[in-house]
């Protein structure tokens, strides 16, 4: 099955060379490199990995690289940005997902960087650790969606670079 981008509940903001996606269903924010963004935007269920590689070559002027497309698809899938059903193994080149991931891991650095949107309570600064989340505010206008809970515990991960080193 050809890959299909998941678009429902996703807010898109275009930057000069990257795309920011806010996934309202998971409260995650993704930064897609130029390559990953071009692939995501063209995953319409009709294009194969080879089609996408040729499209990237035409659009970005880089040589058609199926490995790069597979890497991007893997990262997009992990980020929940593809509809269920796409499987790299079905592409016919990879004999197993493990092999696919292994080859992809050698291909380069991340094309999709992701953070979990912090809940407002994560910003409390009473000087005490782990404050409780604030209650839903009293609203006199149509309500905003309430916070879905505090961030998972643990240290904040660094921002991982889409598209490799500068």
């Amino acid at each position: 099955m050809n890959p299909t981008a998941r678009r429902s509940g996703i807010f898109v903001e275009h930057l000069p060379k990257e795309v920011i996606l806010y996934d309202k269903s998971s409260d995650r924010v993704h930064c897609l490199s130029e390559t990953a963004a071009a692939i995501w935007e063209n995953c319409d269920g009709t294009r194969s990995e080879d089609d996408l590689a040729r499209l990237i070559e035409a659009r970005l002027g880089t040589p058609a690289d199926r490995k790069l497309v597979l890497q991007a698809l893997e990262e997009l899938e992990k980020a929940g940005l593809l509809e269920a059903g796409h499987d790299l193994v079905s592409s016919g080149v990879m004999t197993s997902r493990r092999e696919a991931v292994g080859k992809i891991a050698m291909a380069g650095s991340a094309l999709v960087a992701t953070i979990v949107a912090p809940a407002p309570a994560a910003h409390a600064s009473s000087g005490k650790p782990d404050p409780p989340p604030p209650p839903p505010p009293i609203r006199h206008n149509p309500p905003d969606p309430p916070p879905k809970g505090p961030n998972p515990p643990g240290p904040k991960p660094p921002v991982t670079p889409p598209g490799g080193k500068k």
Partner: peptide
């Protein structure tokens, strides 16, 4: 990059959700 810089701010944005 521009996107990473934006992500760094969003990671600390109070009303983001």
């Amino acid at each position: 990059s521009c996107g990473e810089t934006l992500l760094g701010l969003l990671d600390n944005t109070v009303p983001l959700r």
